[in-house]
Design a protein around this nucleic acid. Sequence first.
DNA 1: CAGCATCGATAGGCAATGCCTATCGCGTCC
DNA 2: GGACGCGATAGGCATTGCCTATCGATGCTG
Lengths: 301, 301
Amino acid sequence: MNLRDLRYLLAVVEHGHFGRAAESCSISQPTLSVQIRKLEEELNVTLFERTSKTVAPTAACERLIGHVRTAVAEADAILAVSRDLCDPLAGRLRLGIIPTLAPYLLPLVFAPLRAALPSLEVEPWEDQTEALLKRLHAHELDAALLATDVIGPEFESRPLFDEPFLAALPADHLLARREAVAEADLARDILVLADGHCLRDQTLAACGRGEALTGNLRATSLSTLLNMVAAGYGTTLIPALAAGAAQDAGIVLRPLVAKVGRTVRLVWRARFPRRAALDAVGDVIAMRLRGFAEGAAAGTI
Amino acid sequence: MNLRDLRYLLAVVEHGHFGRAAESCSISQPTLSVQIRKLEEELNVTLFERTSKTVAPTAACERLIGHVRTAVAEADAILAVSRDLCDPLAGRLRLGIIPTLAPYLLPLVFAPLRAALPSLEVEPWEDQTEALLKRLHAHELDAALLATDVIGPEFESRPLFDEPFLAALPADHLLARREAVAEADLARDILVLADGHCLRDQTLAACGRGEALTGNLRATSLSTLLNMVAAGYGTTLIPALAAGAAQDAGIVLRPLVAKVGRTVRLVWRARFPRRAALDAVGDVIAMRLRGFAEGAAAGTI
DNA sequence: CAGCATCGATAGGCAATGCCTATCGCGTCC
DNA sequence: GGACGCGATAGGCATTGCCTATCGATGCTG
């Protein structure tokens, strides 16, 4: 049984006339007659009582016609929905973002994204790198904004912008008197985030240390870490987009001598079909952050 | 778009594996791959993200799959319903019956019909010949029990049984003394039914008259006519099946010399597809009334 | 009543397509 | 690194949906 045949059946019911029904289906009358007869044979049911004057649906046809209408309507719905769906710049895009980036980047890019891609619903999901990649793998996310390189053939990525790190110091810290801070000088009393944050590893690597001093205090968020620095527990590196929040907390920021930083990347499964949406989102974010690295690295926020 | 393709789509969604999905559809894996790809091209939507390890439905596919399931379910319903419907001895049969026959025949044949054709729902419709034929023509009835010949190529018919007429006389009527009554003798004070009843015309024809004496009293039913006869307003002819009702009314019945009567026929549209049901119904009625004419004509009820 | 018009059914031929087997390309696992 | 598993691709074959031409039946009309 074919959807086409069901449409033919509906046309005959509607017109009560094979010739006009065929015309409405854009086929010839003999073709229609043959197809209806084949349908009758397949269902083993006479669908119409034909004379040269009238074509009347049988009781069996009446019983079936409701199901036929529903089936055809659903087929039409499939076509209609897929017409909407075929625009890759429309629909939901589930975007994972690491916690040290989300609260500082999203306020900057949400408005431009809405403006540039009004029918794309960007749905953010905040979690650490590992969890995001797992969700990406499981098709629970469509893409993610990460600050680490991603290896392996499963994923592809695109760098969007460079985000320098800045030295974050208590206001009364000795290093706060300098114009710029050497990364190694921070190593003595460096504080870092809890396990799983990529920023933790990057901070330690930049300062040439393998382990941190956070001690009993677990900084589970960058916000907490900033509070700890402001309270004089130690120093840290923060990504430049968090500069505003750091200064609000009363922290002194200084550019780094070696100008280390991280690269924020858009990551997706290599086979993800809506590349166009990803490209557009990446373009908007990259455009919004254009020139950001130079200004931030110089300490001019 | 084809229902088959939709079934293939469901199979891939269900199995998450082209090979096993193909097997479940009894086709080869390449065929399935090609058909899914063609469906994707037709809908202009990527339905699956394929790797050599996984086959994951896209968000678009998730949006469509509900409609696909409904469409396929309706198609299955069409097949299931038509499987029930293809038994011509099942389902509703709308049967027209003339008023001078229905109240007397139906009690006799309902039980045998139910016994012989348990899944056939015979739905009687009582009206005069002309109205029944009109409804038959309009497909509002499937068949009719008439007592007249039907002409024209539109209808076919089959005689089921002969029903003799009997002379119905008031108990004190002169003719009641005779063993048998000559039709012409009734003509003097004959009463007949209202216009439209075939029995009216047949009664008048049998008695050799063109018009009746019913006068102001309109006998719109055979029951009323019997009451009029019992009350002494005149005589009439009744069909043999009504004999019981006539005797209950206190009417004297006598066989007719010329043994006139009517033939009850099953009538249907020549193109009506469920001939098997008609044949079966006709057989049951004819069987039930077998030998009825002889006994009735002799006056032995 | 003969001729015509209308309508669905049938016949024959052609092109599209669904299906098959064989094979490829890619990725994974021992 | 070679074997295996999976989906994609290629080429050939049979089916089938479609067309035009025509038939047969029915009803109307001059």
